[in-house]
Amino acid sequence: MSTDVKALGKVAVLMGGTSAERPVSLMSGQGVLEALRSQGVDAHPFDPAERDLGDLKREGFARCFIALHGRGGEDGTVQGALELLGIPYTGSGVMASAVAMDKVMTKRVWLAEGLPTPQWRRLGAGQHSLEAIRTVPDALGLPVIVKPAREGSSFGVTRVNGYSDMKEAVSLAAQYDPDVLCEEFIIGDEVTCPVLGEGDAAVALPVVRIQAPDGNYDFEHKYVSNDTRYLLPSGLPEAEEREIQRIVVQAYRLLGCRGWGRADLMIRASDRKPFLLEMNTSPGMTSHSLVPKSAAHAGMSYEALCLHLLAQASLDGRSAAEAAGH
């Protein structure tokens, strides 16, 4: 599949931004920028934290590669701005981005369609009293995972092993988001599975099995240290891998995602049942990131992946080619 690089026009790689994930986004964006330039794309870095998005229109950018993570980049807001500017962009549209960023809303959608996700309780802004917090382990058992409802890269996430640690965990998560998600802890294998495409054409890439020291896949083990193992091939039985891919594509389609995404799951050790944790609509593209690793295993280089995603850039309901004709 060859791409006419010149037809892509002037490209902005959106990176940085104002979320807690800014440092990761800058790494992702730099990788994407270099990859696109190596393929002859007229690509330029653009940090919405330092520049007005209106400059994209004024400076004649034809499309955007969104390498922003977290709030302001992955939650539908920048997507909405680009819709109004009429500049096609990579990844999911406004609604899918907004829903997927909110882990509670994501679970509600999946559960409504019968997809498996761990049991959970939401503690809203006014529900952080000791009495409210103490009911969570009663309902979900221990250990329990406590995290912000709308944040990524493991920020504000705590594995709580006892009642006495709940208050501190909720306070930490609440620093990132007033809505705190408490989730049943699934003991077993941690896996992730990327998806490319849209609708019926969406396809899952190979499953990646994650082995972090002591099962603690936190920010440090995601982006900094080299002692986390990523198993590709996953080593899972073929039928199990296929079932995970099937569930992930279904989860992706249900949220209305397009372009690309990556679902994180746990496989319960006791019965090998997979549980969906979340859907990332603007996954990392750093040297440690999992979508490039999975794509490489499927025979797609980092450069080819970046070019493919850029070529698929669109607006809600319109392709880049249609948008250019308006």
Rank of each mutant, 00 (worst) to 15 (best):
S2E: 14
T3E: 05
T3N: 03
K6T: 05
L8D: 01
G9D: 05
V13L: 01
G16D: 01
S19A: 12
A20V: 12
A20N: 13
E21L: 10
V24P: 06
V24N: 10
Q30R: 11
L33S: 02
R37T: 07
S38G: 03
V41M: 04
A43W: 06
P45N: 03
P45I: 06
F46M: 11
F46N: 10
R51T: 08
L56A: 10
R58T: 08
F61H: 00
R63Y: 00
A67C: 04
L68M: 06
G70W: 04
G73L: 12
E74M: 11
Q79A: 11
G80W: 04
I87S: 07
P88F: 07
A96H: 05
S97L: 11
V99S: 06
K103M: 12
K107I: 11
L111Y: 00
A112P: 02
Q119G: 14
W120H: 14
R121V: 15
A125V: 15
G126L: 12
G126R: 14
Q127N: 13
L130R: 13
E131L: 10
A132D: 14
R134I: 13
R134M: 15
P137Y: 14
D138H: 12
I145W: 00
K147Y: 00
K147G: 04
P148N: 03
A149E: 00
A149R: 03
A149V: 14
E151W: 05
E151H: 08
G152D: 11
G162V: 11
M166E: 06
K167P: 03
A169R: 02
V170E: 05
V170Q: 08
Q175F: 06
P178W: 06
V180H: 09
V180N: 09
C182L: 11
I187F: 04
I187Q: 13
T192L: 10
L196E: 05
E198Y: 08
E198I: 09
A201W: 02
A201L: 09
A202R: 07
L205K: 04
P206H: 07
V207T: 07
V208G: 05
A212S: 08
G215R: 02
G215V: 11
N216M: 15
Y217C: 10
D218T: 09
F219A: 13
E220Y: 15
H221I: 07
D227I: 08
T228I: 05
P233F: 14
P233Q: 07
E240R: 10
E241Q: 15
E243D: 12
I244S: 09
R246N: 04
Y252F: 04
L255H: 05
L255R: 10
C257P: 00
C257A: 14
R258H: 12
A263T: 13
I267Q: 01
R268G: 00
A269P: 00
K273Y: 00
F275I: 01
L276I: 11
L277G: 03
T281Y: 02
S282C: 13
G284D: 03
T286M: 08
H288P: 05
S289I: 07
S289A: 00
K293C: 13
S294H: 07
A296L: 12
S301V: 01
E303G: 07
E303H: 10
C306G: 04
H308G: 01
A313T: 06
S314G: 12
A320V: 00
A321T: 08
A321F: 03
